[in-house]
Design a protein around this nucleic acid. Structure first.
Length: 476
RNA sequence: GCCCCCAUCGUCUAGAGGCCUAGGACACAUCCCUUUCACGGAUGCGGCACGGGUUCGAAUCCCGUUGGGGGUACCA
């Protein structure tokens, strides 16, 4: 039987990192086994589901390159299916109508809490007499549908990640509601109906679902369907070691996209959070892990999300990226910063700029901040740079540089270097004595990318001489 | 409270009883490269939660303790 897995996000928020990693694992599992990866939108919670979140989830998965083979399916389109399932369970006598009010259930739980026993539904309406039921109806009560759970049952499964997991029926919280009075079916039931209908063979999901699994297994049995394989992945934790929540700042894939992470890098990082390759290599593109990926190397313990490591991976991808491909990504950012316009797109000078700053990048956005001095007419001079330029001898170097540059419009790096070496020799000073003020005058800062290349690039755009003059004229 | 899951450097992890004097990566520190900042390279720092077993031998198996996490809905 061919492998069929799914990712089933709920559109109650933007694509969450945890969902994205579950999607990644499912996608890899499907690709590894030559199976199908299905996308299903779990929008049965009418109050919290929003169309814009559906959009966000779809675009996020696409951005990551996690293409799906079937779907997206929407649960709200499949109500007829759920109705038939409910009818089936009614016919089998496995569900019953339950008439408690919210207040009654609340009171029940309060009492249980006071008695220090586990809060659970006490199955009080499981065996209602006809008279009792009629009385509730006469009172105008609405009934939910509850699925009977046998307290004596022991449920066990062989988890793909954790091995054997055993659950006692009595710990499942009593008979479970599978549909509201309105007829709206609820999560645990709907998931099972869909997974049966979509012939899902392996359910790989977060550990937070582990307690749902025994309930769902019972539903599979009740519906006379084969139980799929389950695998519960560890959770992604925040810095404090707790489940990632909205309060932890950046938790959606979108946030990371906006911050300047590459999808390849983000995938690579998520992969390493909870899965480990068979050797010590850390950098993998998706296609490369397909042959390697399987559930047996998924870790059991939760993993903290570590920005330092993500940053390092992102920088590795950025540094090794082809410069023209990188330009495609950086150009819009430069445009936004006002550094370039559409007509500059094919300017080879831009490639040279990227070539220069590439190894300094951690985030895509760094390409804007780091390259700013090359695009401005006159850079912003830092206080530190100004104090370097305050030295008397500086003007001599700057004037000599102007002379060299004026003589040679298409100066190259070797020539520039030779000229400076000559200058150093003539003056009998150390290299830094010349380089430092020159850097400050040309770039406005004491630090930055290679000075020779910067000089050439600036001169090509006729920005070098004006800057030197600007400094010589007392920053005017 | 109850149930479930988990436990190796600060973080992510390798480790399936002897290959472990516990390996790799990030971070951190130092050095090299270098006009600077980065990049790159080298070195270093740093860990098997604890207590009992089992075994000739345990990071690895078992039990307990502790710690952490998840769940406990007419949410998903």
């Amino acid at each position: 039987m061919s492998v069929r897995v799914r990712i089933a996000p709920s559109p109650t928020g933007n694509l969450h990192i945890g969902t994205a990693r579950t999607a990644l694992f499912n996608w890899l599992f499907a690709r590894h086994h030559g199976g199908q990866f299905i996308l299903r939108i779990e929008d049965t919670d009418l109050e919290r589901s929003k169309p814009e979140y559906v959009e966000n989830i779809l675009s996020g998965l696409k951005w990551l390159g996690l293409d799906w083979d079937e779907g997206p399916f929407f649960q709200t389109d499949r109500m007829a299916l759920y109705q038939s399932g409910i009818q089936k369970l009614i016919d089998k006598g496995l569900v019953y109508r339950s008439y408690e009010t919210a207040e009654e259930l609340e009171a029940m739980r309060e009492l249980q809490k006071a008695q220090k026993i586990a809060p659970r539904y006490d199955n009080r309406h499981r065996h209602l007499t006809k008279e009792e039921e009629e009385r509730f109806i006469a009172e105008g009560r609405q009934a939910v549908l509850r699925f009977k759970i046998d307290d004596e049952r022991e449920i066990k499964w062989q988890d793909m990640v954790r091995g054997e997991v055993v659950w006692q029926g009595k710990d499942l919280g009593g008979d479970m509601v599978i549909a509201r009075a309105s007829g709206q079916p609820l999560y645990n039931f709907v998931v099972v109906m869909d997974d049966i209908d979509m012939k899902i063979t392996h359910v790989i999901r977060g550990e937070d679902h582990i307690g749902n699994t025994p309930k769902q297994i019972l539903l599979y049995e009740a519906l006379g369907a084969a139980v799929p394989q389950f695998g519960h992945t560890p959770l992604i934790l925040n810095q404090a070691g707790a489940k990632l929540s909205k309060r932890d700042g950046a938790t959606s894939v979108d946030d990371y996209r906006a911050m300047g992470y590459l999808p390849e890098a983000f995938n690579n990082y998520m992969l390493l959070l909870g899965w480990s390759p068979p050797d010590t290599r850390e950098l993998y593109r998706l296609e490369e892990v397909i042959p390697l990926f399987d559930s047996d190397r998924i870790n059991k313990a939760g993993a903290r999300f570590d920005r330092d490591k993500l940053n390092w991976i992102n920088s590795q991808y950025l540094h090794s990226m082809a410069t023209d491909a990188l330009l495609e990504l950086v150009f819009p950012l430069w445009q936004k910063a006002g550094y370039v316009t559409e007509t500059d797109r094919s300017d080879p000078w831009l490639l040279a700029v990227l070539e220069l700053i590439k190894t300094s990048l951690t985030l895509l956005q760094d390409a804007v901040t780091i390259s700013g001095y090359l695009f401005q007419d006159i850079p912003d001079y830092t206080e530190e740079a100004k104090s370097v330029l305050a030295n008397d001898k500086v003007s001599l170097f700057l004037q000599q540089m102007i002379a060299i540059l004026s003589d040679c419009q298409d100066l190259d790096e070797a020539q520039a270097k030779a000229a400076i070496e000559q200058m150093i020799k003539d003056q009998g000073v150390k290299k830094g004595v010349v380089m430092k003020p020159l850097r400050c005058a040309l770039t406005g800062d004491v630090h930055g990318p290679d000075l020779m290349t910067s000089l050439v690039l600036l001169h090509q755009k006729n920005k070098a001489i004006p800057r030197l003059n600007y400094v010589l004229n007392g920053f005017k």
